[in-house]
């Protein structure tokens, strides 16, 4: 209940004028440091509201005197970062890819920038570190290259991609031997055995022998007489242990019957030339570059 506001004898402090069961409450002031800090935060808050975006409206918000936005700050930082990297990116753009590969300083940059660009753009299909993935996503770390593993060949492939609309795109189309009835089932079976024999995994020697003639007539023009592959035509090598679509007989039969036609975008259409070069140099250094 309210009582008189009076001075407490013991402490010299005023009471609040409230009393509960004989207990009166002292009106002890807030500590000065606390109070001043509190005032300072109020001043800070007002200044902040004037300078920065603060109040929402139905469709917009106050802009603040500084015109600051989080997006603007990000854009500024990105701009500054690009400015910072501009000299080395210009050098990379002006340097031949083979020379980049031999320049330790540029390769130091490629190792860092390439890893990021690769993870952003390439790893989705080719896997982290260029490990490749089952189902037609080639490993970029091994020494088997469908379109060539020299720096220039890799740069060409990265720039223009494979089987896309770009006029410089790498293109070759394997005929659908089974679907289009170019070969009958027995012939496909025989030639599959013959292809497997090239890497020593055939199980039917007689069939493989029969397949030799079929291979020479239908396959050798792209895949090479001995299955060594023809890089200029993009004809994959068949006589090694690396299989893009599986090396068991069923997979090989499927490949011959339906043909496989993987795609890759033309990265020159999406990325700036220096980044494309960085990617090519990075891929070349993954371990399989020639």
């Amino acid at each position: 209940m309210p009582t008189k506001i009076e001075k407490d004898a013991a402490t010299g402090q005023m009471t609040t004028g409230h009393e509960w069961d004989g207990i009166k409450e002292l009106n002890t002031p807030l500590p000065k440091w606390w109070l001043y800090t509190f005032y300072a935060t109020i001043v800070f808050g007002i200044v902040y509201m004037v300078l920065y975006p603060a109040w929402p409206s139905l469709s917009d918000h106050t802009k603040g005197a500084l015109g600051w936005t989080q997006r603007g700050e990000l854009a500024q930082k990105m701009e500054a970062e690009q400015q910072r990297l501009a000299p080395i990116m210009a050098r990379i753009e002006a340097t031949d890819i083979a020379d980049i590969r031999n320049d330790p300083e540029l390769m130091g940059y490629v190792a860092a920038a390439g890893r990021v660009a690769f993870a952003d753009n390439c790893a989705g299909c080719h896997g982290a570190g260029g490990a490749g993935a089952a189902g037609g996503f080639p490993s970029l770390a091994d020494d088997d290259w469908i379109w060539g593993g020299t720096p220039d060949q890799i740069l060409q492939t990265v720039s223009y991609g494979v089987r896309n609309a770009n006029e410089n795109s790498r293109i070759n189309d394997m005929p659908r031997f089974g679907v289009d009835q170019l070969l009958d089932r027995a012939q496909i079976d025989d030639v599959a055995e013959y292809v497997l024999a090239m890497s020593g995994t055939a199980t039917d020697a007689a069939a493989a022998e029969r397949g030799a003639a079929v291979y020479a007539e239908n396959c050798a023009s792209c895949h090479g007489e001995k299955g060594e592959g023809i890089v200029d035509l993009g004809g994959p090598r068949l006589n090694d242990g690396i299989w893009l679509y599986g090396g068991d007989k069923a997979s090989v039969v499927h490949s011959i019957t339906y043909a496989r036609r993987g795609n890759m975008p033309a990265w020159a259409e999406r990325l700036d030339p220096a980044t494309v070069k960085v990617l090519a140099a990075y891929v070349h250094a993954l371990g399989g570059g020639q």
Binding site: G127, A128, G129, G130, A131, G132, S139, A141, D142, D143, D144, R237, D240, G241, I242, G287, G288
Partner: peptide
Amino acid sequence: APLYVTLS
């Protein structure tokens, strides 16, 4: 990544 690479 990759854990290992099989060569040709």
